[in-house]
Design a protein around this nucleic acid. Structure first.
Lengths: 331, 331
DNA sequence: TTATCCACCGCAAACATTTGCGGAAATGTT
DNA sequence: AACATTTCCGCAAATGTTTGCGGTGGATAA
């Protein structure tokens, strides 16, 4: 316990000054090779490890990033986090992870924790009714980079890393047209979220543009079970839908539960298309055709952007990860 | 930037000493109410926030826990992490998360990072061939609690928090007997892991004990696709199995892919039982019957144990979370 | 009047490190 | 031999906070 090695303890052992020991360990050119050798040997022997707090205090850098998500237990976010953690570590950074539990207050609290922890950078995906604007602008002003991902602020004032939401929705719509589906249920998430709006608008735009004679039943579902309910109701009617589109894994799960409980077969009776992280669609039979939103790759992009931002302040940028169409058997 | 409020800056404004300001903010009885008021007002005005590094340096406490898992992107671990994060925050702690990627070297590295970061406690689930023994015993010796969960060391020298692995496997075996299954495929994970051995041994013990006339085909599968392969092969034979048992979600997914690709129906042609976190079984039709291993609840137990350990050093303890049988339609 | 006590506050050390500056000794240059 | 340069190292300040101890001024008690 009290036997922790410090620069001072090394220095008295060797009759050197603290500063010399410090420099020796850092290969400062001012120190002779001989001294460096002696210092390093003793440092290893005494199992010296620099006190991170003292270093941080002095240098005002923590080598820690904060990562704020609505929830960790989520197929998209957990792979995002995994990617960020990998590359953060490779660059000598650690990750403090905070979940906002879809609560704006907790989100604000999380940003404060990041501030108190004096992180060197923040990754954040916003909760639905976020009102943390002043909080994160303050980070920017302090010169601490904030990278938004997935759920990002509406305006273009910040660094963002997103899926190609419009593109994904456009591909989805075009696919539906291509397959000549005439009666479609479209399930979207919380309409307050920009991600929902982006996907919805792009989706609908295609049909308007193509003047396709297609009946779109658009529903906003805030949960998996809400989606299940909507689909159950829809397929119980006389005029059944031919196709179901889900803008997320969560909604897909709900929809599939409903379909599985019915006697309908995919894709014969009803076809399915989703925007997904890729894990869930593979669990069903047939596998669901989807447009991929890859959390892992997005994480890689986000940390790359962060590191860029660390070394030289670059202008604000919006990065978009292209969508990928993955053929299953549900369409 | 350079305009960060400090105790000193507050003190000069008010013509007080730094120590008085510090004490005033902490409601020290030596300070008059009047002074406290003035100090607190100015502190708010100047947006004073204590410098965590300085505090940590001085007090030698970080209010940070380290959490090391084989992988974040995992249905069990992510809910575990979510639970720990929740309660850690409630108690003023943050969480540094590190993944070992099933690599013993990286695991050791992670423990070193925890040491360097001078965390106040460590949660860790070990990788298969862990050789980090000296590392985490060193933590113990330094008075820093280490809570092992899920994948824990073999001996009884440490604080552990585990699922009731034996019980879960025993319940599974008894269920299989009860349903009079005679030809069973049993899928287990990496046999190097204590969790696998515990479940396997308890599983087999039941059949020996009951002298049941049951044919058990036991397979070790290191991945989801390995499980899929095993099952595909088994059901293609003449004498098909009547039942499949999976000791984990990962294996269940593989098994279900295989079954779904076949013409077999559940539970008519073949029945299924799994040990699972509870999310995956609900995705299939019919829903899979399973014995629950609840990552979230286990996380709650782990953090509780950690906090107990923080305030008063308690003797080493092994905590076990009971298993729960969840009836689906696959059996 | 002097001793005692309390309420309130400041001094200074300590935590471990980094870093600008300066200085002594050794070496090199005319 | 006088001067310049290089090599190597230490002093001390600075980072922001906590905390043991001591001190001051006023009130109360004897």
């Amino acid at each position: 316990m009290g036997t922790q090695a410090t620069l001072k303890k090394i220095s008295v052992q060797l009759n050197l000054s603290i500063s010399t020991v410090s420099r020796a360990l850092k290969n400062h050119p001012d120190i002779s090779e001989n001294t460096k050798r002696k210092v390093k040997e003793l440092a290893i022997l005494m199992e010296y490890e620099p006190n991170a707090y003292a270093v941080n205090l002095r240098t005002n850098k923590s080598k820690v990033f904060g990562l704020i998500v609505p929830a960790i237990s989520n197929l998209f976010y957990d792979s995002f986090i995994a990617a960020v953690e990998e590359d953060a570590r490779k660059n000598g950074y650690s990750l403090i992870i905070l979940q906002s539990a879809d609560d704006p207050l907790q989100e604000s609290e999380n940003l404060k924790i990041c501030k108190l922890s004096r992180v060197d950078g923040v990754f954040i995906s916003l909760v639905p009714d976020s009102h943390s604007d002043q909080l994160y602008t303050k980070f920017q002003e302090s010169g601490i980079p904030v990278i938004f991902f997935d759920k990002v602020p509406g305006n273009k004032l910040f660094d963002t890393v997103c899926m190609a939401d419009e593109e994904a929705a456009t591909v989805a719509a075009n696919t539906i047209i291509k397959y000549k589906k005439k009666k479609v249920i479209a399930l979207f998430g919380n309409p307050e979220l920009s991600i929902t709006r982006k996907r919805r608008d792009a989706f609908l735009k295609v049909f308007r543009k193509e003047k396709a004679d297609i009946q779109i039943d658009l529903h906003y579902c805030l949960s998996s079970s809400a989606a299940q309910k909507v689909v159950t109701e829809a397929i119980s009617k006389k005029s059944k839908p031919e196709h179901i589109f889900c803008m997320s894994d969560e909604l897909l799960i709900g929809a599939m539960k409903s379909i599985n409980q019915s006697a309908l077969s995919i894709p014969g009776d009803i076809s399915v298309l989703a925007i997904s992280n890729g894990f869930i669609p593979g669990l069903f039979k047939p596998e669901i055709t989807y447009i991929e939103t890859n959390g892992y790759e997005l994480g890689k992009l986000a940390i790359k952007r962060m590191l860029e931002n660390m070394e030289n302040k670059t202008p604000v940028k919006s990065i978009i990860l292209p969508a990928r169409y993955v053929q299953g058997g549900s369409l």
